[in-house]
Amino acid sequence: MDITGIKQISVSLSDEVLDLNDTHRMTKIKHVAAPLSDKNVLDLVCGDMVYLSGVIYTARDVAHKRMLQAMDEGLDLPFDINGQVLYYVGPCPARPPRPFGSCGPTTSFRMDAYTPALLDRGLRGMIGKGRRSQYVVDSMKKNAAVYFAAIGGAGAAISRTVKKAEIVAYEDLGPEAVYKLEIVDFPCIVAIDSAGADLYEFGPELYRK
């Protein structure tokens, strides 16, 4: 799948960003399609602000554990992971008629131990919050993958970007089941790119007094 085009909007970031009714007047938002192509991944640079659209899958602690068990046993994963983006989230139940409940990111490092095996298998992107271990960054460089930070604690607004949700595996896990999500303009920031540049590293350095 190709990149859907990068829209450059040249409005400088000042107080407009806080204008609740006009959140699209943001600078440098890249519109990116999921699943990710090679070109998508390589074009994304640490610090890019992104609106992600397309299909992504949710998975967190126990779903990761089960996927790795399946791989160990030589079984298929519940979906073709090649090129896919995993979103670390455990949503609220959906209040009808909404397709999905509140759904902000969970802390990513709990998934670190499982991540290199999935990257080796074709996983190209992850969405979560917080830092990753060095061995995850190394595996991302090796496999050309990208890590997006979504905004923790903004789960209600994020749920607006989910247009459709269906459970594809591990329904017994409730909020931890694997969902296939169709998203439009899901807001996130490239925290670690495929070259290993890490915004969690140099972002705070810029503002340390």
Binding site: V17, L18, D19, L20, T23, V89, G90, P91, C92, R95, R98, G101, S102, C103, G104, T106, I151, G152, G153, A154, G155, A156, A157, I158, S159, R160, P175, P187
Partner: peptide, 20 residues
């Protein structure tokens, strides 16, 4: 900006501010 928008949206829609 996103945090403030989220607060407003959750209140208006009566859904959870954060999924946790």
């Amino acid at each position: 900006g996103q945090i403030l928008e989220n607060i407003d949206y959750a209140r208006n829609e009566q859904i959870a501010i954060c999924q946790d």
